[in-house]
Nucleic acid binder design. Structure first.
Lengths: 99, 99
DNA sequence: TTGCTAATTAGCAAAATTGCTAAATAAGAG
DNA sequence: CTCTTATTTAGCAATTTTGCTAATTAGCAA
């Protein structure tokens, strides 16, 4: 559901999470430490990103490791380029009406 | 600011506007006619897109012509790719990295 | 079991977004 | 000037998002 993706990207802290994950997977706690917001707040940001499939989570014992879903980000950038007529594949995707 | 851009993209109707403008500039009325929402609602969507600099408006007598700001959309797609480490440097290895 | 750390969920209030109708503005025609 | 058309702005209610604190779950170890 593409709408969730764009909504997830609409918050600066969530974009910063993606930026941080760019250099590799990170533990939830290490991510949260990079922000001023409270842990629960960051936890929700992470769940929004996960819901949008922009990141995925893997439990490692006590902690949870997050990693960026590169292909989804890539596809979204592609969708954006499609708006201006740059079609890289034949994936001319817009057909979403409303929600 | 970039935040406005992603926020503007977070609504399906606003993305549809961009999609419609892809084939060329359109009058506000013609755009509004493509949606179920009321005219004032569409007018606000247009103003959000304009605020984000994703589209620009030009008055033509009685009516207002909207066009997509291609470069801004392009830059946003580039910013998205940057999250996954693809640098869209004008100079060299764009092709290589985009692989 | 208890205790500790990591992370999420629950619940609430403040803020922002959405979409409507009604009113206002802008430009042209007569 | 008035009238008509095109579009935006004002103002309001419903919904969604945000961020907090407090409570809860999950895993691990003694």
């Amino acid at each position: 559901m593409q709408n969730n993706i764009f909504k997830a990207l609409a918050h600066p802290d969530r974009r910063k999470v993606l930026s941080l994950l760019r250099s590799g997977p990170k533990l939830a706690g290490d991510l949260a430490a990079e922000f001023d917001s409270s842990w629960p707040t960051m936890s929700r940001h992470l769940s929004v990103l996960k819901e949008a499939d922009l990141i995925s989570a893997e439990r490692q014992g006590n902690q949870i490791l997050y990693r960026i879903n590169t292909s989804v980000v890539e596809d979204t950038a592609g969708a954006l380029l499609a708006f201006i007529g740059v079609s890289q594949n034949d994936n001319d995707d817009y057909e979403e009406a409303a929600e």
